[in-house]
């Protein structure tokens, strides 16, 4: 009963998303608006400005290096959160055990 309702709603969502996606420029054409002057600039100047043939490496560690600093901070924050979640409750449990015992 509940599952049937979900299937109907999600089929509606699928039709909606597909009908809006079919208005996008077709896959793999060079005239795609995302292939604009920014991408062309990176492709043309990365060897000259960063001396790195790998354009993606030039983007993430030279042009947008500050962005990557934030990315590594996300990793650091996630590991700090995981360790704190997994360790604080242990201490609480030990305290509870002491009270019960």
């Amino acid at each position: 009963m509940k599952k049937g309702l979900f299937i109907v709603v999600l089929a509606g969502l699928f039709v909606l998303l597909v009908s809006s996606i079919l208005k996008m420029p077709s896959l793999g054409s060079v005239d795609n608006p995302s292939y604009n002057e920014t991408a062309t600039y990176y492709l043309e100047n990365s060897v000259e400005e960063a001396h790195a043939p790998n354009v993606i490496a030039a983007i993430i560690t030279d042009y947008r290096a500050f962005d990557t600093l934030g990315e590594t901070t996300v990793l650091f924050t996630s590991i700090a959160a995981v360790i704190s979640v997994l360790s604080i409750n242990h201490q609480d449990k030990k305290k509870g055990g002491d009270i019960n015992g």
């Binding site: 795609n32 995302s34 292939y35 920014t38 991408a39 990176y42 492709l43 354009v55 993606i56 983007i59 993430i60 947008r64 962005d67 990315e71 996300v74």
Partner: peptide, 10 residues
């Protein structure tokens, strides 16, 4: 286009 590939790493 290299830009979406670089952004999706994040």
């Amino acid at each position: 286009n290299p830009l979406p590939s670089a952004l999706i790493l994040t």
